[in-house]
Design a protein around this nucleic acid. Structure first.
Lengths: 106, 106
DNA sequence: TTGACATGTGACCTTCTGGTCACATAACTT
DNA sequence: AAGTTATGTGACCAGAAGGTCACATGTCAA
């Protein structure tokens, strides 16, 4: 399994994406902290965090017996750059902005 | 299964990412055309293309008995925007550029 | 209209994945 | 030292996903 595969497989699960959302909102959180936000046992959450860490989407730092988790946005940017080149980027962002504008009208 | 889930699940498979790579390089290709690039039966490729289409990553147009496939970059951009805000975007692109520079040095 | 070509469908099997649990290690507190 | 707190490991099971095949539909060309 190569690096790409690890990143995409990691993102494929909704619980893991929710963990990234939590870390995007506030960094440096511990396992016990994150665990309280999911309807799942501690073991499940730890397993998900391990997958995210091995994919490089989350980086960690130990502080005593606690392990702090941080979001790393670099792999996300690389996904973007794989299928959106500089020429289409402006075009796409325009489309996305338009999409948001239309959604707000309803 | 919601839209997000469909997109990320679709991206989780290497064969499907390769199909997106092929379409990124050249759009408007047919199933038979794409099939010849994968080491898999026609049925497998058709199944993957269906997953990509249901996720909105690929849009299609029929032309007679052929079905033409096109890459849609919008969902990719939305992934980017989910975890990279305007403040960190510049920071991240700098990191990515640095990463590329370091890789070229070796 | 007959045959060849391009694609679609549903069943089937094997492998991978998500989640839980019993058990284990390591660090802080008193 | 002893108990509590925070996290790590390996086994296990149910459900999902990747791939193939027999069969079916629709379109072009002569």
């Amino acid at each position: 399994m190569d690096d790409d595969d690890r990143v995409f497989k990691a993102l494929a699960d909704p619980s893991r994406r929710f963990l990234l959302d939590l870390l995007f909102e506030r960094d440096g959180r511990t396992l016990g902290d994150l665990e309280s936000e999911l309807e799942m046992t501690r073991f499940g959450v730890a397993k998900h965090l391990k997958v995210l860490e091995e994919a490089g989407l989350v980086v960690t730092r130990r502080s005593g017996r606690e392990k702090l988790h941080f979001l790393n946005p670099v792999p996300i940017r690389l996904i973007h750059d794989r299928w959106i080149d500089k020429y289409t980027e402006h075009h796409v962002t325009t489309l996305v902005d338009l999409k948001h504008a239309l959604e707000e009208e309803t």
